[in-house]
Structures are given as structure tokens and as C-alpha cells.
């Protein structure tokens, strides 16, 4: 390879041939015609594509329907410290199971999706939206609860496969919970009945004696 057995200049010409092939090919060869005219055409992003997180809500109300229970797992695990959660309190001052404030600073978020990965409630997911350029830094760069909340329908639209899996999983969990509750109630009822039976069989209850 180190010694060339050809006329000087041939190597250059061969290189020019490649450049020429690329130049003319870029007019017709689809393999070389790669430009996507961005604002008019867009690349079709794959389903897993991620940029910034959003919060999923079920139903119709973007506040009441939030899946987030303010457990703060994502806040603790966020590597860039971009998440801030303030837990809501009910009228008695006890912590309630929803966030009062939920803020994600997209000026610090690095889109690593660890929040979505660790969330035990499938409440936070990754959006693929990337058009966030803004002239200011404080308000547009901090996404608050209302801006973060997006419906489950939206989630299904951007990530159909993943959202279907999540829905099936949540449905299963709900079913299991329901089942467990039913069993518990059944057991309680049985116990009550047994106690009533025992009380009937033994009319002289201790309070009489």
C-alpha cells in the first residue's frame, strides 16, 4: 500500500471520480439524496425518541387526572437536578397524593429519561418534541405543572406501542388491587359472619356475665 505503482495523478483522478459520483448522484440517487427540508418536511422520529419529560394525565382534567402522586422519586434520581416538586397538602395540612408544584427546568434537563425509568406510577414520560427555542430564559425554560401535563391520548399518539404496554400494565395493577380489595372484604365479611354465628351459638355473651 505504501508504494504506488501508477502514474502520478491517477490517485487524484480516482478521488475526483468519487467526488463526481457523489455530486451528480446527489441529484437522483436516493441513497445520496438525504436532505430533509426541515420546516416543511420532517424526519419521522422513531417511537423511542426522547427529548424532555412530560406528565401523563388520565381522563379529561389536566390537574385532577395527573398520575403523579408527588413521591419525589424522580426528583431524587434526576442526575442534573432539573426537577422540583412541592407536595400538595389537604385542608388539614396533611400531605396529599398530588403535586402542588411540579417544575422541570429544560435549561438543565439532559433528557436522559432516568425519571421516566424510575417512576413507579408511569406518571412521567419522555416527549419527542424539540422546538423549544425561546428568547427568554426564566419563564420559557421552566415547564410548570400545567405545561407538563399532557393527556394519555397524546401519549398514545406519540408512542403507541409503549403507551399500550403501560396501559395494559396499569390495568393489570388496577385489577390486582381490586381483586385484593375484594378478597379482603370477603375475608372481613366471612370473619364477621363467623363472629355473628359464634355470638348466636353462644347467647350468653361476656358482657352479660
Amino acid at each position: 500500500m505504501r508504494k504506488l505503482k501508477q502514474l502520478p495523478g491517477v490517485g487524484l483522478l480516482k478521488g475526483m471520480l468519487v467526488t463526481g459520483r457523489n455530486f451528480f448522484g446527489s441529484y437522483r440517487n436516493p441513497r445520496r439524496l438525504v436532505t430533509v427540508s426541515y420546516p416543511e418536511q420532517r424526519l419521522l422520529l422513531p417511537e423511542s425518541s426522547r427529548n424532555f419529560p412530560f406528565l401523563v394525565y388520565d381522563g379529561n382534567d389536566s390537574v385532577e387526572g395527573l398520575r403523579c402522586v408527588a413521591c419525589k422519586t424522580c426528583e431524587r434520581e434526576c442526575p442534573s437536578g432539573a426537577i422540583r416538586i412541592v407536595q400538595a397538602r389537604d385542608e388539614n395540612g396533611r400531605p396529599a397524593k398530588h403535586p402542588e408544584r411540579f417544575e422541570i427546568g429544560i435549561d438543565a434537563c439532559m433528557g436522559c429519561q432516568i425519571c421516566a425509568e424510575v417512576c413507579p406510577f408511569d406518571a412521567i414520560k419522555m416527549d419527542s418534541d424539540y422546538e423549544h427555542a425561546a428568547t427568554g430564559r426564566t419563564r420559557p425554560m421552566v415547564h410548570n405543572k400545567l405545561r407538563l401535563a399532557k393527556s394519555n391520548t397524546y401519549y398514545h399518539r406519540i408512542k403507541p406501542r409503549e403507551a399500550a404496554e403501560v396501559d395494559a400494565r396499569l390495568e393489570m395493577e388496577r385489577f390486582r388491587k381490586e381483586e385484593a380489595r375484594r378478597k379482603r372484604e370477603e375475608a372481613a365479611r366471612m370473619k364477621k359472619e363467623a363472629a355473628a354465628k359464634a355470638a348466636a351459638a353462644k347467647p350468653e355473651a361476656p358482657e352479660n356475665s
Binding site: 500500500m1 501508477q6 502520478p8 490517485g11 487524484l12 480516482k14 478521488g15
Partner: peptide
Amino acid sequence: DSYPGFLDEMEQLLTENEILR
């Protein structure tokens, strides 16, 4: 499968180019 074609092209472009050498 598409990579060897690209590498062939690169080799043709670079390896014998007198200026590069």
C-alpha cells in the same frame, strides 16, 4: 450491508490520493 460500499468509496477517494500521501 451498506457500509462496505461506503468504505470502498472512501478507499478509492483516499488511499491513492497523492496529496494525501
